[in-house]
Design a protein around this nucleic acid. Structure first.
Lengths: 157, 157
DNA sequence: AATAATAGTTATTGACTATAACTATTATCC
DNA sequence: GGATAATAGTTATAGTCAATAACTATTATT
């Protein structure tokens, strides 16, 4: 027999009814994301990285010579907002910007050794942080989740 | 035989390598969310609702008499940011605020008939918009996704 | 050669979130 | 029972972030 007959309450926190929001995928996605994001932000901040700068650094590390427009496309952000981020990564010696000889409008971005090492280290920390949150998901559920999310992304194009 | 031998390109859009981000759940969640959110925003704007005001209206409609602090808890937002949102819902005649006699610090929030009708209509539009994006997911994948997302949410508490 | 489009940049704006400080009211603890 | 804590709502403000427009330099188009 439970300690209380009233299952609508859980140790003083009354259950709030919800007939609509919980069935919306956007709502569920946002709330799940909000569980993960602050932790990712926190571990990245230890290396003075924001989530967005880590994302940039990571894509640059995987694509030596990528130019800013392509990076902006890949990360679905405005190229104007990229500028200061790349500025900072460059000043910290994590990436280099050099003119493309065949098209002098463009700058080729390349991660330095330091940049690649930081990326790898930061990625490990983010993975660890994520694993602590999603730990209870077994490998099958996790793989299924990732696959479905990837399909959701691909929907528009 | 494919039209082109080079599968790394898809009609002029070069594939960007990614060895790290795509394996991160936070990254995938955000990108999936970003597919849905603008559409939800768009259809709600037709009824002069923001996503957050729709969320408030919906929870109030499901919980007649809920007070602002409880609502803020349920939606994981700051109660200070709730004030102007409730102000507007009240001015539009969608919810009422009335003093709780037993605790005069609190205001009981209740959705009006108009508020409930608008909530129902807006929810239908959001569901329709979501269905167009996730249309290709079958019922099984959809149910699995929702269940896993719900478990992710519950992890911290 | 004239005109378009593209890449990068700068500056600015609006939206949203978080924080601190305040008032009124209720709960708590000697 | 009275001093002190905590809570609910509110206001104002500051920081973060994404979106936009305007500009220069360079390349592509016609």
């Amino acid at each position: 027999m439970p300690q209380t007959d009233d299952l609508s309450e859980d140790r003083g926190r009354p259950t709030v009814e919800d007939t609509v929001l919980g069935e919306l995928i956007g709502y569920r996605l946002k709330r799940a994301y909000m569980q993960i994001q602050p932790e990712a932000q926190r571990v990245l901040a230890e290396d003075d990285l924001r989530v967005v700068s880590f994302s940039c650094l990571s894509i640059i590390a995987d694509n030596a010579g990528i130019v800013q427009s392509e990076l902006a496309d890949a990360l679905q952000m405005e190229r104007s907002n990229l500028v200061v981020i790349i500025d900072e990564l460059e000043q910290r010696g994590l990436v280099t910007r050099k003119k493309v000889p065949t098209d002098r409008r463009r700058y080729a971005l390349t991660a330095t050794l330091r940049g690649r090492r930081l990326r790898d280290r930061a990625a490990d920390k983010v993975r660890t942080a994520e694993d602590q949150i999603i730990g209870r998901l077994d490998d099958k559920d996790r793989a299924h989740l990732m696959a479905v999310l990837e399909r959701l992304e691909a929907k528009t194009r």
